Amino acid sequence: MPKEILKSMHADMKKAVDHTLHEFSSLHTGKATPAMLDGVRVNAYGSTVTLKEVAAVTTPDARTIMVQPWDKSVLKDVEKGIQEANLGLNPIIDGGILRVPVPELTGQRRQELAKTAGSMAEDGRVRVRQGRRDALSLLKTAKNDDGLPEDDFKRYEKEVQKAHDDYIAEINQHLAHKEADLKKV
């Protein structure tokens, strides 16, 4: 039973770190990447869909994202979706495609992005702490109901804390790297 609790806890904490890294990928450092538009939702065909479902997203150069809708009739919807995503990007219609120039980051914008990265990291740390809390709660239940010996409980408790510390350190390391990336001109 305790082994399954630890396995589940590790999976949850790993998901928290992966989610935080995915969130970090949405913060751009002035270099265009298709991942910058991952969160864009488009109202097309009577429903809300992701941008990837209606268009190909490429980066022909470091300063431009090119969006080519599969169906030309949704071009205006895609443009509106990008504008409404509040990414600070302004798409330009060029024939049947959208060109999205990525502006140079100002010092103030870099600070805002670093602050956003910090709050994303804190969300990740909260999820890791929640994984620790859930695992400890399940271990206490196992100790009380299933007769888990006190020595084993203490050993598992230390394992849970070590895993928590390792995952928190990993998030902090990624945050420091992302902040350095964002502040580098």
Rank of each mutant, 00 (worst) to 15 (best):
E112V: 03
A163C: 01
V160H: 05
E157A: 11
R110G: 04
N144M: 13
K178P: 06
K115D: 08
H174L: 04
K140H: 07
I171G: 12
A135W: 00
G147W: 06
N172T: 09
G147K: 03
E150R: 13
R110H: 04
G95A: 09
A121K: 10
I171A: 08
P149M: 04
V126N: 15
E122S: 05
A169T: 10
L138H: 14
R129E: 03
G124N: 13
E159A: 02
R99A: 02
H177K: 13
R155E: 09
F153S: 03
Q173M: 15
H164C: 12
A169R: 12
E170F: 15
V100A: 04
G147D: 02
Q173V: 10
E150Y: 15
A163D: 00
D134I: 06
V128C: 11
T141Q: 03
L148K: 00
G131Q: 04
R125H: 15
K143P: 10
L98W: 02
R125T: 07
L175H: 06
V160E: 05
P101G: 00
L139I: 04
L98M: 02
A163K: 00
E159F: 00
H174Y: 13
D166R: 06
K140P: 04
R125E: 12
D123N: 08
I97R: 09
D166V: 11
R133P: 04
E157D: 06
K158Y: 01
D151C: 13
G118C: 01
